[in-house]
Amino acid sequence: MAKFTLQVNGQARTADVAPETPLLWVLRDNLDLVGTKFGCGVGQCRACTVHIGGQPVQACMTPVSSIGRKAVTTIEGLSANGTHPLQKAWCELDVAQCGYCQAGQLMTAAALLAENAKPSDEDIDNAMAGNICRCGTYLRIRAGIHRAAELTATGIATKKETAQ
């Protein structure tokens, strides 16, 4: 066991865990951030996607000891009140069915939009191909990313608004 201090969603958070413990379980069991999901444990479903240093990574494959002082962002930290354009678009288009994979979908999509403000269908398919949605909401996910891009472009979502 060893103490690790992580920068999670803008806060310093400390956990006393074995160094090889995947970030996923530190978030869920130690830090009570349960939005990041366990689906396969081998990086195949990407329900556990978080951002480390702004890049989407699989938390289930990332030992806590490898993170250092790099900024970790989870679904809970994607926006202050659920007001990220993707979160708004997801609610507007009623994307989720069971909803279990959607945190991972949103984190992957957020990384895409940060690099490519107006992605094509093909850009989206390529970026999202790693994330499984068992319920099959892919068409709505794709539409949701387009809608979020549109919300951002028109500035609707950049104003401070409270969550619905």
Binding site: L33, V34, K37, I75, D94, A96, G99, A103
Partner: peptide, 21 residues
């Protein structure tokens, strides 16, 4: 009408919701 799921906001903000949570 088209009505969004009642848990949508919790889903997109990663709140405690599922069995495993």
């Amino acid at each position: 009408q088209r009505i969004g799921g009642v848990d949508n906001q919790k889903i997109v903000t990663g709140q405690n919701l599922f069995g495993l949570d």
